[in-house]
Computed example of a mutant assay.
Amino acid sequence: MPLPTDERLIALSQELLQQFDAIFGLNPGFRPAHAKGTMLTGTFIPTAAAASLSKAPHIVRASTPVTVRFSNSTGVPLIPDNDPNANPRGFAVRFNLAEHVHTDIVSHSTDGFPTHTGQEFLEFLKALATSDPANLKGSPLEAFLGSHPKALAFVQAPKPAPSSFAREAYFGVTAMKFTNKDGVSRFGRYRIVPEAGVEHLDDAAAAAKSANYLFDEIAERIAKGPVKYRVLVQVADEGDVVDDATIHWPEDRKLLELGTISLIAPVADDAHEQKQIIFDPIPRVEGIEPSDDPLLELRAAIYLLSGRRRRAAPEK
């Protein structure tokens, strides 16, 4: 995927990467956020109704191979799975359409995002880097959250630890524009729901878990049989705001079922493949386009810049 030509966007991307490095330390070969992860392979099978929303290749084909990456938050490669900072969890999906042809979904387990723009997100990270979250009084972070109610709502939203990666729901926080074969376009946001049902742990139960409990559990689970998720799209109504990830749409908006992801095996040479793969928040496929959300171009640039840096790091 190409790097954007907007120099201000590239400069902002570089500043954000530097802030992640300042907060989490520099860990060559790992992502600056969601560093600890694991990848699995499987298949996506669309529903018959999915074609009414989009003409994208993976929506109209009988099935498409997928690669999925589960991850913990932060840029700390060895963060314990039961550390509260490991939430929200990440779930990235690559639909492998042909050799070197793909489209992705990037989602996480908290519905929403703390800021509307990349500049605001940079201010948020700078405030975080210069504050003690356990002692907010008079800190830059307290000042930022006090003047940014959407960021405060995101920070205060419950983020309980899941009992399993297979028992967590994930949200695509930015809207996409879906177009079907008749040229009808609608905006929507992804929701990925586990077939096994959502199950969270209370603080005491999470604290009692091992530092690698989620990664151990998903390896044991996948060895026993497929791990399945329903891929849904919450469809916006006319007049809903579609370019701001901090704004939630009402829960009565239609949920259209796109299909089912069935994961069947770990990726071979997992560490190497995690280092190589660069997920793309922008779909770049006919039938699914980005909305005008300003986070999309920025996130794509950051993913590409950090991915190139990660690939250039020596193999362990």
Rank of each mutant, 00 (worst) to 15 (best):
L9A: 03
A166M: 13
T5Q: 13
T64A: 02
A129N: 15
G75E: 10
A206F: 05
K181T: 12
L78H: 13
P281Y: 00
A151W: 04
L3I: 13
S73R: 05
V93L: 04
L17P: 11
P314G: 06
D21P: 03
V267Q: 15
L17H: 07
S139N: 04
I45M: 09
I192W: 04
F121S: 01
A161S: 10
P65C: 01
V106R: 06
D280S: 13
A166E: 03
L141S: 04
A169L: 04
F121A: 09
G118V: 08
P290I: 04
P158A: 12
P80A: 08
G112N: 01
T260H: 01
A169K: 14
S109P: 13
P80I: 01
E273F: 11
T64V: 07
L136D: 00
T67N: 00
S210Y: 10
S63P: 00
E286S: 05
R89L: 15
M39R: 14
I278C: 00
Q19V: 01
L125W: 07
N212E: 14
L136M: 11
N135A: 15
A11P: 01
P226T: 05
V193I: 14
T64E: 02
A49M: 09
G188Q: 09
N82L: 03
T64I: 03
L304Q: 15
K275Y: 02
N135M: 08
F24D: 14
A236W: 08
L258E: 06
E220C: 05
V66Y: 02
G172N: 08
D269L: 08
K126I: 10
F95E: 09
G118A: 05
Q234T: 13
Q19K: 13
E273T: 14
F215E: 10
S164V: 09
P194I: 08
G287A: 04
H248W: 11
T110I: 13
F20L: 12
N82W: 04
V101E: 14
G42S: 08
V101H: 09
V227D: 07
A196E: 07
A219H: 08
H116Y: 07
R94D: 11
E99T: 14
Y190V: 02
G138S: 11
I10P: 07
S107F: 02
F171E: 03
R89W: 12
G239M: 09
S109F: 08
K126T: 11
E315Y: 11
D202P: 06
K177V: 08
F24E: 10
R311V: 11
L122Y: 09
D6P: 05
D244W: 03
D6F: 06
F113S: 08
P194T: 07
P162G: 03
R89I: 06
L145G: 03
S109D: 07
A312R: 11
H34A: 14
A98R: 11
A204P: 02
P65Q: 00
Q18K: 14
E199W: 02
G287F: 05
T47E: 14
L141T: 04
S164M: 11
S164Y: 04
F124P: 03
Q18H: 13
G112R: 02
A312S: 15
H58E: 13
R69N: 05
P281W: 04
A143M: 06
I23S: 02
L214S: 08
L256Q: 15
N82H: 12
A48T: 03
L298E: 06
G75M: 12
E7V: 10
E257M: 09
I192C: 00
P4A: 06
P114S: 06
D280V: 10
